[in-house]
Amino acid sequence: MAKAKYYYDSETLSYRKIERKKRKTFKYATVFLLASALFGFFFVIIASQFFESPKERELARENQNLKFQYELLDKRLDDAMAVLENVEERDNAIYRLYFEANPIPEEQRRAGFGGVNRYKKYEGFNNSELIIETNKKLDVLEKAVVVQSKSLDEIKILAEDKEKFLEAIPAIQPVNNENLTRMASGYGYRTDPFTKVRKFHYGMDFTAPRGTPIYATGDGIVKRADNSSTGYGKHIRIDHGYGYISLYAHLYKYNVRVNQRVKRGDLIGYVGSTGRSEAPHLHYEVWKDDERINPINFYYGNLSPAEFDELLKKASLENQSLD
C-alpha cells in the first residue's frame, strides 16, 4: 500500500493530506514513458555506432574471410600465369622453332575480350576492385590456356610427323661393318672398272662376300625388286617418303617383294654380283627429289664417330669403282 503524503497549511495551521488527481498522474506517466522510449531509441542508435551485434560480428568475420580467400586466389592466379608464361616461352622458343612452325604472337595470346562491360555485376561492393581484378586475371588465364592447348595439339601433330620423318630417311649403313671386306668406292669421280675411263660414280660400293645380309636404311615401301634396270642387276628400290629413295644393286637374291612395307634394319636381300659388276659388292644410292645425293651423309644411325670418320676417309679416295 502506498504511503500517504501530507503538506502544512499555514492558514489553518494544520497538516493536510496531498490528494493527486488521476489526470495529472496519467500525464506524468505518459511523459515518463515517452521520455524513456526516446532515450532507449537514441541509446540504440548511438550504441550501434560503437558496438556490434553478434550477427554483425559474424557477418564481418565472413566478409574478412572472403576477402582473404580472394587474395589467396589472386596470388594463385599470378603463380599459374607465371607457369603458363614459362610454357609459352618454351613453346615459341623451342618447340615451334624445332618443328619450323611460326611462334604465336603475344597479341594473340593476350587478346582482349571487347564488347560490353562483363564485370559490371561486380561493381558497388566493398571489395569490388579486388573481385573485378581477380575475375579479369581468371578470364585472361582461361583464354591463354585455350590458346596454349591448341598450340600443343599442333606441336603434337608436328612431332608425330617429325618422328615419322626421322624414321623414314635413310640413316644407317646398309651392310654391317663386321661383314664388310672393305668400303671399296665412294660418291664422286672414279675410274670405271670396264672402260678405265674417269666418270662420276653416284653411289657407294661396299665389298662383302656373296650372301652377306643387306638391311633397309629407313622405313618405307618397296617400289622395285627386279633386274630390269640397266647395269644394276638384281636391285631393290625403297620409297621412304618426303622425297627420299634408297637403291640397293647387284644383289644375289631378294628377301622382300614389291609394295611390301619395311622398317629400318629389316633384312631385304643379300650381296651378290649381278648386272654390271666386277666382284661381289653392294652398290648403294640415295635419291632426294629425283636427284642422286651422297649417301655418306646418312650413316648417323649406327656408326660411332670413329667409324664414320674412317668411312669418310675411305669414301673420299678417288680409286676404281666396282660397277
Rank of each mutant, 00 (worst) to 15 (best):
A168C: 13
I169D: 00
P170F: 04
P170I: 06
P170D: 06
I172H: 11
P174E: 08
V175I: 15
V175H: 08
V175S: 08
N176Q: 12
E178P: 03
N179R: 05
L180H: 12
R182E: 15
M183V: 13
M183S: 07
S185M: 01
S185C: 02
G186K: 05
G188P: 07
R190A: 02
T191P: 02
D192P: 05
P193I: 11
F194D: 09
K196S: 14
K196N: 15
V197I: 05
V197A: 11
R198H: 03
K199I: 06
F200W: 07
F200Y: 10
F200G: 04
F200E: 03
Y202F: 06
M204Y: 00
D205W: 06
F206N: 11
T207A: 15
A208W: 02
P209R: 13
P209D: 15
P209W: 05
G211A: 06
G211Q: 02
T212Q: 00
I214L: 02
T217W: 00
T217I: 07
G218A: 05
D219Q: 14
D219T: 15
G220W: 00
I221V: 13
I221G: 00
I221C: 01
V222M: 08
R224A: 14
N227G: 14
G231V: 12
G231S: 12
K234D: 14
K234S: 12
R237P: 00
G241R: 07
Y242F: 15
G243V: 09
Y244M: 11
Y244L: 10
Y244E: 04
I245L: 10
I245D: 08
S246M: 08
Y248S: 02
A249Y: 01
L251E: 13
Y252Q: 14
Y252W: 13
Y252P: 02
V256L: 14
R257L: 11
Q260K: 05
V262F: 04
V262W: 06
V262S: 04
R264E: 00
I268R: 01
I268C: 01
I268G: 01
I268E: 01
Y270H: 05
V271A: 03
V271T: 07
G272H: 04
S273L: 04
T274Q: 04
S277Q: 03
E278P: 00
E278Q: 07
P280V: 00
P280D: 02
H281E: 09
H281A: 06
L282I: 09
L282Y: 07
H283V: 10
Y284K: 01
E285D: 06
E285R: 02
V286M: 06
K288T: 04
K288M: 10
D289N: 15
D289R: 14
D290F: 03
D290R: 08
I293R: 14
N294Q: 12
N294M: 12
N294V: 10
I296H: 01
N297Y: 13
F298L: 14
Y299L: 13
Y299R: 09
Y300I: 04
L303E: 08
S304E: 11
P305T: 15
A306H: 04
A306E: 13
A306V: 13
A306D: 10
E307N: 11
D309V: 09
D309A: 15
E310I: 12
